[in-house]
Computed example of a mutant assay.
Amino acid sequence: MVAEFNSAFSINGLPIVYDDLSEVAYSLVKEGEPFEKEIGDFLLDWVSESDKILQRTSGSTGSPKDLYLSKKAMVKSALLTGSYLELGEGTRAVLCLPVSSIAGKMMLVRALTLGWKLTFVPPERTPLWSVSGDIDFIAMVPMQLQGSLKELRRVGKVLVGGAPVSKDLRQALLGKKTIVYESYGMSETASHIALRKLNPPVQGTPSGTVPAFQALPGITLEQDENQCLVVHAPFISPEPIHTNDLVSLSDAHSFHWLGRADHIVNSGGVKLIPELLEAQLEPVVDRRFFLTGIPDDVLGEKLVLIAEGKPDKDLLAKVKRSAAVEKYQVPKAVYFLDTFMEGKSGKILRAEIKAELFKNE
């Protein structure tokens, strides 16, 4: 099929016509760095006869699997983003995400479809240091945004996703004029289906208030019997997309994310949502950490805290003294690891860390 294409599209300052896409792609595959080879492979897929793109899911809605996304759905998603964020033809954009991810693929689709002037750089922690001049738009994961705070003055709009944005990072954005949106989405939804504006804060909004995610036009939301989010996006899938994300649903178009259903700890009959408690403990624990459950003869499961870095024998006592959480929500034990395993987006790999830590128990 002939893929959607806008003639204003350019790569690294070079205008590209549709008939030259294959040649550009072959050159990247043959001579490029590993991240450039991924770009070339995707461009070849985009101009191929197939009407679908193969994407390996991240496992957000179950075990990782191969997924085939319609090119038409990806184009529709790109058009929605362009319209919602007012990023039209001629937008100066930077691709700094691996194209193995749906987020990286969609940056290319947006550029091709909307006619952006795209610059691509290695998917490193400080991508803006590789780019000169002002930028209209860039999509990043939180660790890249954290590493780019000093350069944000050159950027008009940022889309951040792939992992939760910490309270400290949200705080670091205060006072900066760059417009930052946090995204919610997954491979199955061809990138994000909802956004929330983190910065600059809406006038009159209390300090520290986290806004709700707002669904893009044409997308509606509901909850299943387990309070998990269900997404209705007809342009992506004729069937509802069921997620494993616990949410507080404001209405059919907005929600607050609470945590993952598969992370819930059932301790003595009380269901604890680790992500909610982690947010409350963030000011108390001065390092990366997460909460999880492990088997317990009395409680069935007990809540424990796993922290990164050198052991601190006073950490649990500090948590108890803080009163940041209720007594029954205080972890029963603390475990330490020198370094956390993390995914490409910087997301902490909870299941893998837990399996490694307790493999001999």
Rank of each mutant, 00 (worst) to 15 (best):
E361S: 11
T209P: 00
E38A: 12
H232Q: 07
C228N: 13
I219F: 14
R92K: 15
M1K: 07
L69P: 07
V121W: 09
E342K: 14
L357A: 12
L69C: 05
G13H: 00
L118E: 01
V160D: 05
A307P: 07
L128R: 01
M186D: 04
L21N: 02
E188P: 00
V121F: 07
L14C: 08
F120V: 01
K65A: 15
A279C: 03
H242R: 14
Q144D: 10
V270I: 13
G59H: 02
T126Y: 10
P331R: 00
V304W: 11
L305N: 02
H256P: 04
K105W: 06
K344T: 12
G115A: 08
P331M: 14
P122S: 04
L21F: 01
F289T: 09
K72G: 04
L114H: 10
S77K: 00
P142K: 13
I53V: 15
G147P: 07
S130K: 14
T113Y: 03
P240V: 03
F120C: 13
V334S: 13
M107D: 04
K320D: 02
I179H: 03
S60E: 09
L174A: 13
D136H: 04
L108G: 02
A103H: 06
L152W: 06
S100K: 04
A307R: 09
K37W: 11
K30E: 13
N266M: 00
E278I: 04
L79C: 10
F340Q: 10
L249G: 00
S191T: 07
P64V: 04
L114I: 10
S207A: 12
H263S: 12
E4H: 11
L87N: 11
T220R: 11
V160C: 05
D66Q: 00
R350K: 15
K347I: 07
A233D: 05
I241R: 03
L108H: 04
A351Q: 14
S100G: 06
K271V: 07
K332S: 15
T119N: 12
R287Q: 08
L337H: 04
